[in-house]
Simulated scan of single mutants.
Amino acid sequence: MKPSLQGIEDAQTLAQAIVDTIHEPLLVLDAQFRVLAASRSFYEIFQVDPEHTMGRLLYSLGDGQWNIPALRLLLETIIPEHTAMDGFEVEHDFPGLGHRNMLLNARKVIYQRSSDTTILLAFTDITARRLIEREKAELLERTEDLLGQKQVLLQEMQHRVANSLQIIASILMLKARAVTSKETRDHLKDAHQRVMSVAEVQAHLHASGGLDKIEVGAYLSKLCNSLGGSMIGEEQPIELEVTADGGLIGSDKAVSIGLIVTELVINAVKYAFPDTKADAQILVSFASDGDDWTLTVADNGVGKVADPVRTKPGGLGTVIVEALVKQLEAKMDVRNGPGMTVSIRRGAMATVPRAA
């Protein structure tokens, strides 16, 4: 049964209404790429009129503005072989519009009762999107360049800080050897050890590549190895042990924790074992649970009752530790017997290991 003339006209009216309803520009082409229909948005965006569009070859529209090699490739080579193509990008300078990036979707329509074919060609203007992408890429490139410059400056600063700390430590040690007063010499040695502790902290952070967070276990082990090597003598061997989970902590907080450990270990080495003790031990431990953590420095020495000098108020070490604990928004607990256990807690952590 052949369709009636009225039916064909109704179908054409419906087809044109659908084309005009589409928000994006749309063309309907015949097999020779002549325009059979165009959407209203096509006329508005590309500033052409139906009189100079309908029935004309696509490549001749708008004084040849659509005679684009990439578009020819799409219509004459890709579409005949694949019948459909999505996301084909065309970049072109359109008269009156300027430079545009267009995303083309094309479909070849094959009819069952006719040998004719038509091609649907839809356009999406992605100029603004591409501009934003280019701006983002340029911003990312500038950011990476600034980060590279920052890293170079940071490395230079770390190098200078390390050299300065080494010079200060050397001067303090030379002064300690030169003075005759034992009390002054001890104070200078303490100052030397504190400077070396800061240097060790700085060196470890530098080795971590400027990371925002570092592994506490490796950090404390390296720090305590340095402390033990410089402070523990043959006349009283002391086992300095570090236990820690795999917790990470911010590099800024790691500096404070390192200084606290230095002060407490120095205190334990100096005062916990006034007499020779075969199994002398200092245990440094760190346990974490998210942002909560507990730092503990414990020894199996004489404790504070037997040696009140260890807790003499107003000492520099005590002032330093208390200030650092406050800075970390933590709480300190000191327990005596056997030995001494100092725990620094932040949050709800409550693990308190003791020296054997």
Rank of each mutant, 00 (worst) to 15 (best):
I126R: 14
A280F: 13
A203M: 03
A350D: 13
K175G: 00
G347F: 00
T13Q: 15
W66V: 04
E141L: 12
S60M: 12
Q327C: 03
L165W: 02
V198S: 09
L324C: 03
E76P: 00
K136N: 15
E9W: 06
E9L: 13
H52Y: 02
M173R: 11
V284G: 13
V109N: 02
L104V: 04
V109F: 03
V305A: 15
V255E: 10
D279F: 04
I214R: 10
M1P: 10
A207Q: 15
Q166A: 15
V216L: 14
L140V: 13
R335P: 00
E215F: 11
G233F: 08
P237F: 11
I68T: 05
A37H: 06
P353V: 02
S226L: 01
M340T: 15
G210N: 08
R310I: 06
K136T: 11
S164I: 02
V255M: 04
S343E: 09
R194E: 13
V19G: 01
E138C: 07
R34N: 10
N101Q: 09
V302I: 10
Y219R: 02
I18E: 05
K175F: 04
S343P: 05
T117G: 01
E89W: 02
K189Q: 11
L14Q: 08
V179M: 07
K150Y: 01
R310G: 12
S114N: 03
V152T: 07
G62M: 06
G337L: 14
A17Y: 01
A280D: 12
